[in-house]
Amino acid sequence: MTWRPIRLAAAALGITLGAALTVAAAPARVVSINLCTDQLAMMLAAPGQLASVSWLAADPRSSAMAAAAGGYRLNHAQAEQIFLMHPDLVLAGKYNAAATVSLLRRLGVTVVQIAPATSFADVRRNLLAVGAALGREAQAREMADRFDADLAALRVTGETPAPAALYYPSGYTPGAGTLADEILKLTGFRNIAAQAGVSGGGTLPLEKLVMARPRLIVTSAPYPGESRAEEILRHPALRDVRAQAMHVTSDADWVCGTPKLLGAVAKMAQARRALEGGK
């Protein structure tokens, strides 16, 4: 009897296994088909263990590890392509590429799915889950402990939370129960969207943003070309609000729940201190 399928299933659920199971051989050929598992795998895999990551991992607009991704074969999360790579483990997101995951499993390929992180605690859990799946538990624990320590050092204390808005194309905003909301709270800000009742991802009417008078606005860098979704970011009312507030542009560090998130936290902590200094 092989313990490997049991071990991998438990890793996806963050279950700690006994010593008898941890002796199972680590996977030798791993493929990741999700932007966030791509980055976790690149951080944790042993040399030569990771065979392929998704094409999104090489896009600097969405990936905090685009340069590193250039050293791997890129995939488009297609079952036929992945199967022909002969992986003994595929890492996937919980909600993406459902058809690919289903077909790979029917073909006998082991797939571990990782849920997106919506909290700092999830970042640690996902590090440990991917580490267990790769047979790199010790490295994952070390990285998770370092993440916790670095995060604690960036916490902004002693300041009254300042109103802040996260505002993206089509008026999209992360509300309560999101990783972005946790970043705001840790660095001394109050999320206007969460206060307005937005839970998870949602939209915030521009009128509510204007009336809330944020002291800081976080928006994304525009993509090349023209987009109707981005027109709201050029609205005169938002321009007037931005003229009276500090502005931060989000980047790839914000996208996935990995230790790269510390870059976004550091930027926000710096902005909060600058804001307090300027009153």
Rank of each mutant, 00 (worst) to 15 (best):
M43V: 03
C36T: 09
N34M: 00
L44A: 06
A51V: 13
G48Q: 11
R61M: 12
A67D: 13
L35G: 04
M42E: 11
Q39N: 04
A41M: 05
M42T: 12
A45T: 08
A46N: 08
A45V: 12
S63M: 11
R61P: 06
M42L: 11
A68T: 13
A67W: 12
P60A: 09
A69V: 08
M65L: 15
Q49R: 13
A58Q: 14
A68V: 06
C36V: 08
A46R: 15
L40V: 10
A41V: 03
T37V: 14
I33Y: 02
L40R: 05
W55C: 00
L50G: 00
L56Q: 14
A57T: 08
Q49V: 11
P47T: 13
P60E: 13
P60T: 03
A58Y: 02
R61S: 15
D38F: 10
S52G: 03
S52H: 02
L50E: 04
I33E: 03
D38K: 14
Q39V: 10
R61Q: 15
A57N: 06
S62C: 09
C36E: 07
R61W: 01
R61D: 15
D59I: 02
L50C: 05
L50S: 04
R61F: 14
S63L: 13
P47D: 10
A64E: 11
A58H: 00
I33H: 02
T37K: 01
A64S: 15
A57S: 14
A51N: 12
A67Y: 04
A57Y: 02
M43K: 06
D38A: 08
V53Q: 07
I33C: 07
L40S: 11
L44D: 12
A57Q: 01
I33L: 11
A46F: 05
N34F: 04
G48Y: 14
I33V: 13
I33F: 04
A41F: 13
L40N: 02
A58S: 15
C36D: 03
L44F: 11
L35E: 06
L40P: 05
M42V: 11
L44Y: 03
L56T: 14
D38L: 05
M42A: 09
L35M: 06
A41Q: 04
L44E: 05
L44H: 07
S54V: 04
A64P: 11
A51H: 15
T37I: 00
S62M: 14
A57L: 00
A69Q: 04
S62Y: 14
M42G: 08
L50M: 13
L50F: 12
A46V: 12
S62H: 13
I33W: 08
A57F: 00
P47Y: 09
A45H: 04
Q39F: 06
A66I: 09
V53H: 08
S63G: 02
A45Q: 02
A45L: 04
L40D: 10
L50P: 03
S62N: 09
M65Q: 14
S52K: 11
A64F: 08
A46Y: 12
S63R: 01
P47E: 09
D59S: 00
V53S: 06
Q39T: 13
A68E: 15
R61N: 15
M65E: 10
A67S: 14
S54W: 01
D59H: 05
R61I: 02
A69N: 07
C36F: 00
